[in-house]
Amino acid sequence: MKQDNSIYLRRYIYSFFIATFLFILVFAIADSFTHISYERNARESEVIRSYITDLNGYFKEQSCSDQLIFDASLKLDNVGNRIDLLEKRFGKSDQRVVTQKKQYAELQHTHYLIIQRLNKYCGAKFITVLYFYTQAKEESDANEQASFILNAFKQESPERIMIYAFDSSIGSGIVGNLKTWYNITSTPSVLVNQENKIDKLTHISQLDPFLKEVR
């Protein structure tokens, strides 16, 4: 016995519209949450800017107090996390992400200068690590491994080891200047305490000699 599909045709059409509506609604809700997150991050950008001002003021005062720099380090990490989330939602080439990363590079640079000053004039023993990378696909495995190692290295003394990651592909003037200044010609590249360049970071033991300074 054959069945007549035409009696179900209207139901098929309704189902198509309901399913499509729900499907689009889900994306719309997800997009709304993404937008809320972006707005939140955009507000945070204002905080970043004011922090840059604070840090610059701090830099000018030539204070040897550690407290502000610890707070700044913490904030720096949080900003990094937020940009990471944004990048996941919008993609690495999204203009909003690139803009935030440029600001982030600026903030890191300021922080880095203060740490250098503390080391030089206050006898502090911060280890600084500059990490230069790009978004190139062929670098992804090396980046992943280097990042993992640097992360573990940071945990050896989170308050004394300062890691600054710079994305060379965002066209930031600050990143370009740093690369020129330290003669960084390839990526990924790691520079420890301004003068020790490691082009291929594959094992944490390559960083162990620097731990003596913080222990």
Binding site: D77, N81, D84, E87, Y131, E144, S147, Q155
Partner: peptide, 29 residues
Amino acid sequence: MSISTFLKEKNCQGRESEILNFYHILTYI
């Protein structure tokens, strides 16, 4: 959370993006 973790997450995502697209398309279907 440190800066390097931020990097690590991002790089993993980039490496797998093509396969994830295939995975996502199947899931959406």
